[in-house]
Deep mutational scan, measured.
Amino acid sequence: KNAAKIVNEALNQGITLFVSDNKLKYKTNRDSIPSELLEEWKQHKQELIDFLTQLES
């Protein structure tokens, strides 16, 4: 999976991924984040940080 797909899947579940101080963060109104999503974010962390940083610049 690529970073764009992961970010879109998160958005579809009401979760916004973003970068703050070079760290991957998220915002959501959900009570909890599915563990498989958290695991996927960890596996692709640097790719996600790079992707989101490019989007914001």
Rank of each mutant, 00 (worst) to 15 (best):
E36V: 09
N2E: 10
E39Y: 08
A3V: 11
I33L: 06
N8H: 13
R30Y: 05
A10I: 01
E36N: 09
T28V: 04
V19Y: 05
E47R: 06
G14Q: 05
L17K: 01
E40G: 05
I6R: 03
L37S: 04
L11P: 00
L24E: 00
R30I: 06
E40K: 12
D50Y: 12
K27N: 07
I49C: 04
K23I: 13
T28L: 03
Q46E: 10
T28E: 02
L52A: 00
K42Y: 13
K45Q: 14
L37I: 06
K5L: 14
V19M: 05
K45A: 14
I6S: 01
Q46F: 08
K1G: 11
K25T: 07
I49F: 06
Q13I: 08
H44C: 06
L17P: 01
Q43Y: 10
L38K: 06
K23N: 11
H44D: 02
E47F: 05
N2A: 11
K42G: 08
T16D: 05
E56R: 10
L24Q: 00
W41K: 00
E39W: 09
D21E: 11
R30S: 06
L48C: 01
I15T: 02
Q13W: 15
P34V: 03
K45V: 15
V7M: 05
A3N: 02
E47H: 05
L11A: 14
K5S: 13
Q54K: 14
K27R: 13
H44V: 04
D31P: 14
E9F: 07
N8P: 01
F18A: 03
T28C: 06
E9H: 07
S35K: 12
T16F: 15
K45L: 15
G14R: 04
T53F: 06
A4F: 10
V19N: 02
E56M: 14
Y26I: 04
I33Y: 03
T53Q: 10
E36P: 06
E56Y: 09
L48M: 03
K5N: 09
T28M: 04
D31G: 11
A4Q: 12
N2T: 15
F18V: 05
K42V: 11
R30P: 02
L24Y: 01
W41M: 06
D31L: 13
F18M: 05
T53N: 11
V19P: 02
G14W: 04
P34G: 04
Q46R: 09
E9W: 07
E9S: 06
N12H: 11
F18T: 04
D21S: 06
I33P: 05
E47C: 07
E39V: 08
I6H: 02
S35L: 14
N12C: 13
L38F: 09
W41C: 03
F51H: 06
E36S: 10
N8L: 15
N2W: 10
L11G: 05
D21I: 04
K1Q: 09
L38H: 05
T53W: 06
N22G: 15
S32C: 11
N12K: 15
E36Y: 13
I15D: 01
K27G: 04
W41Q: 00
